[in-house]
């Protein structure tokens, strides 16, 4: 019975179908991987904008009851304040429902308006990549990793003969191990 199974053909079919399945997942991990790799250069999850405004009357109005609505009107921000906080005796912070944070300096009459916006799609991809959600995604991404191991190992048996892994092309396989090994030795990992 076993003699009827064409292992070579089966391996190629499985490699092909699992490969198709892994396209989406690979793109998710690859795109977010590049984004997260440059964490020191940019914020891959949020777009943070900052604007500084000088509003002369702040120190005289800041303790008045209508201060918040007055300030939002001055800044032309159409939203609601959801929380407030005195950071220091001269610095007051307001948080709006549209993810603005307003740092008001009553001493120099300045307001730093910061707005945080989650980056479209990329924030979600990064969340998946870093498995911040845990739950079922943990198992699903484990499965993806196992499938990647299968794709890597099965690739060794995809092609026979001159272009197979036993030819000079085997050096490419070796390079995939040697390059990280050089980094590990260089950085004493």
């Amino acid at each position: 019975m076993n003699k009827d199974i064409n292992w070579f053909k089966l391996n190629r079919s499985l490699h092909r179908d699992i490969g198709y399945f892994c396209i989406g997942l690979t793109l998710i991990f690859a795109v977010s991987g590049i984004a997260l790799n440059h964490l020191d250069d940019w914020n891959p999850n949020y777009q943070v904008t900052q604007e500084t405004h000088l509003i002369p009357d702040i120190n005289s109005v800041i303790n008045q009851e209508n201060f918040e609505s007055w300030l939002l009107k001055k800044l032309n921000i159409k939203t609601k304040v959801k929380a407030r906080f005195w950071q220091t005796p001269t610095e007051y912070k307001l948080f709006t429902t549209d993810n603005h944070s307003l740092l008001i300096n009553a001493q120099n009459n300045s307001v730093v308006v910061e707005q945080v916006k989650a980056r479209f799609l990329l924030k979600s991809l990064n969340t998946l990549h870093l498995n911040e959600i845990k739950s079922a995604w943990t198992y699903f991404s484990d499965l993806y990793a196992i499938l990647l191991i299968y794709l890597a190992l099965s690739a060794l048996f995809m092609v026979r003969g001159k272009k197979g892994v036993k030819s000079l092309r085997g050096l490419l396989v070796a390079a995939g191990f040697i390059i990280p090994a050089i980094f590990m030795m260089n950085y004493s990992l």
Binding site: L14, D17, I18, F21, L25, T127, L128, I133, S135, A136, W137, F140, L143
Partner: peptide, 24 residues
């Protein structure tokens, strides 16, 4: 079949993403 199994796995993945979308 292997294909059916993969479709089930894929759907469970999609489900886990939806689960995340409504996570508290």
């Amino acid at each position: 079949s292997a294909l059916k199994l993969m479709i089930i796995v894929m759907l469970s993945g999609i489900f886990s993403v939806f689960n995340f979308a409504s996570a508290d």
